[in-house]
Write a protein that binds this DNA or RNA. Structure first.
Length: 587
RNA sequence: GGUCCCGUAGCUCAGCUGGAUAGAGCAACUGCCUUCUAAGCAGUAGGUCUUUGGUUCGAAUCCAAACGGGAUCACCA
């Protein structure tokens, strides 16, 4: 809509002799209760027009009608200049802009971005919180790709540490040689089972020690199980053959389980990083930071950074015994990623409980003057809470990812069968449809909310399939496809004289898709896409209800409506694709 | 206690780069299937936008404070 703002700049210059920038103009969509498609707020211009907002609006409106071909009419209500563009303009927009396949796909912008997401621990299966993370990361990657970035999806797997050793130890003690094959239990769930067993037995020991007179803290430290786990971690670090072998075996089980879960979720990665390879990184950066005077060493040999001037605290970056802490390896990993990909931006999809950590990490890398440090971004999302509060894996109050997905598909099956709409479907088609709808409902439910807001999930209340939901949008798509499949659309431009209100509204909304993608990309928020696609589907249904496509008054109008419907289906499909949601041809 | 995030209809959320009478969905109530899929459409009802100040022609939106909720402040990850 540049041609409008350009013309307004000229109008203000000619009418009032004042130079303004295009960005000074407040151009918005006209609210539906008023006539017109575009609205300019005229209050800001009264400074140099020395007239009332109404009179100013009239001045500019008359100028636009006289000088801009596509401006057909205007009306002024208070300080709002509503502009009506010619139907021929909107028709042209539909045919030459919206319908071509390039619509909603931006040319490469020459920038590379890494999106790190998922980043699971390998001691237990994924839960609902991970689902939010995975869907966000995947969707943001899709959105950035559509916006013109070259995207690298990365997964930093936390495959080592005390938590893994806990599962390993418990399996050694109580596992009786169980394997996923022998039990039929999915690998990640099997390993998670032993993580829970460890915790149960550990708690027993703590209680026993407390009964023997130790304090809580003492008991936690002295329990034999935790000591054995720590010893195992030490052996792992020393490369002990037996420990390494068990570690590889059990991690292997977990990876095959994760692969299934990722497949069900529909997410994937271009690059894996493993903490077992990266946990020692970062020490050279410590040296570099000491040389540059960014870090300082205390008497005991520990290394710190003083961030008090930035409103933060002093932060340890290397222990006195010379070993790394979490942030040390994150510095190293950031460097490793940059060396691998030289990306312009690097997004970390991590929960908001780590806000402080990333604030510190990014600040350190900036102070070190690291390349790429300015492109770092923590996509911080809110926790998923249950009505009972926070999910705790150790307390068993988690919503398991695999269970939840299975339930969603099951619910989709029940709903669909109730509606009796799958008569002509093969079994395979039915399975596919249930999965599409169930996952669509779940994904849309999680992605429509602003990432930074915490999310309440009530397992007792099923995710809706009606209203502001994924299935509503999927249904709209299926409806359109059903109409289109009945006829051969001619796919060529037709000229119609006058658009109906809904038709024009639909083109206006469709036309907004590219800027919505840019907005979502700039804010790293799939919610913007989700809400846009919903608005579009809602509007299409209104159109569908008001205007018959196949029984249009004449052939030209029918062809136009078919094209309008086709454009709507395409944008719905692309938009849902950016959310990682499939849309069915029939449902 | 310090820092950060959040607070909009009974519930779940949009709107937040300041602009018109604050919008959806769910739940409740009313209509609409002999017409392209009723997982739909149309309508009724539901709001001190947590509160109080400030900036402005104009504040849900920006600023400050208070209140409420959450997170975080380890030689854990």
């Amino acid at each position: 809509m540049n041609f409008i703002t350009e013309a307004v700049v000229k109008a203000v210059k000619q009418l009032y002799g004042t130079d303004i920038a295009q960005t000074d103009i407040n151009l918005q969509e006209t609210r539906k209760e008023f006539e017109g498609q575009l609205t300019i707020v005229t209050f800001p211009f009264t400074r140099f027009s020395k007239k009332s907002p109404e009179q100013t609006g009239n001045d500019i409106g008359e100028y636009l009608v006289a000088n801009v071909t596509d401006v057909e009419a205007f009306n002024v209500i208070k300080g709002f200049l509503n502009i009506c563009l010619a139907d021929s303009f909107w028709l042209n927009t539909l045919y030459s802009h919206i319908l071509p396949d390039t619509f909603g796909v931006f040319a490469p912008n020459g920038q590379r971005v890494m999106v790190e997401y998922s980043s699971p621990n390998t001691n237990k299966p994924l839960h609902l919180g991970h689902i939010r993370n995975n869907l966000l990361g995947y969707s943001v990657a899709q959105i950035l790709a559509a916006a013109g970035y070259e995207v690298v999806k990365a997964n930093l797997v936390n495959d080592r540490g005390i938590h893994i050793c806990k599962s390993m130890l418990a399996w050694q003690k109580w596992g009786n040689g169980e394997t996923p094959e022998s039990t039929g239990i999915k690998g990640d769930h099997l390993v998670g089972k032993y993580y829970v067993i460890f915790d149960k037995e550990y708690k027993k020991q703590i209680e026993q020690l407390k009964a023997d007179g130790q304090t809580e803290d003492e008991a936690k430290k002295n329990a034999s199980l935790i000591r054995e786990a720590q010893l195992m971690l030490l052996k792992w670090e020393q490369g002990d053959d037996d420990v390494i072998s068990l570690w590889k075996t059990m991690n292997g089980w977990v990876y095959s389980g994760f692969a299934d879960t990722y497949k069900s979720l529909g997410v994937d990665f271009d690059q894996y990083y493993y903490e077992s390879n990266t946990y020692l990184l970062g020490k050279d950066i410590i040296e570099e930071g000491l040389e540059k005077g960014v870090f300082f060493k205390k008497e005991d040999g520990s290394v710190w950074i003083d961030l008090t001037a930035d409103g933060l605290d002093q932060k340890l970056v290397l222990r006195s015994d010379g070993t790394s802490v979490y942030i040390t390896q994150d510095m190293g990993t950031a460097q490793l990623k940059y060396n691998d990909f030289r990306m312009d931006k690097s997004i970390y999809v991590v929960g908001n409980e780590q806000d402080y950590h990333f604030k510190v990490l990014f600040l350190i890398l900036q102070k070190l003057g690291k390349a790429g440090a300015d492109g770092l971004f923590h996509l911080s999302y809110g926790m998923v809470d249950l009505p009972s509060g926070k999910m705790k894996s150790r307390e068993g109050t988690v919503v398991d990812a695999d269970d939840l997905m299975a339930e969603m598909v099951q619910t989709a099956r029940e709903r669909t069968e109730e509606l009796g709409k799958v008569d002509g479907f093969s079994d395979e088609e039915k399975q596919m449809l249930y999965k599409t709808i169930g996952m669509g409902a779940l994904k849309f439910f999680l992605l429509k909310v602003d990432p930074k807001k915490r999310l309440l999930f009530d397992p007792n209340e099923s995710v809706d399939f009606q209203g502001h939901t994924g299935p509503f949008i999927q249904y709209t798509h299926a409806r359109i496809r059903s109409v289109l499949n009945r006829v051969d659309a001619e796919n060529k431009r037709v000229e119609i004289v006058e658009l109906a209100g809904v038709e024009r509204d639909l083109i206006v909304v469709l036309n907004r898709f590219p800027e919505v993608i840019q907005e979502a990309a700039a804010g790293y928020t799939p919610a913007v896409i989700a809400n846009y696609v919903y608005d579009l589907a809602k509007l299409f249904n209104k159109f569908y209800h008001e205007k018959s496509i196949l029984q249009a008054e004449d052939e030209t109008l029918k062809q136009f409506r078919l094209q309008l419907a086709a454009a709507s289906a395409k944008v719905i499909k692309k938009g849902m694709g950016l959310l990682g949601i499939m849309v069915p041809e029939r449902m």
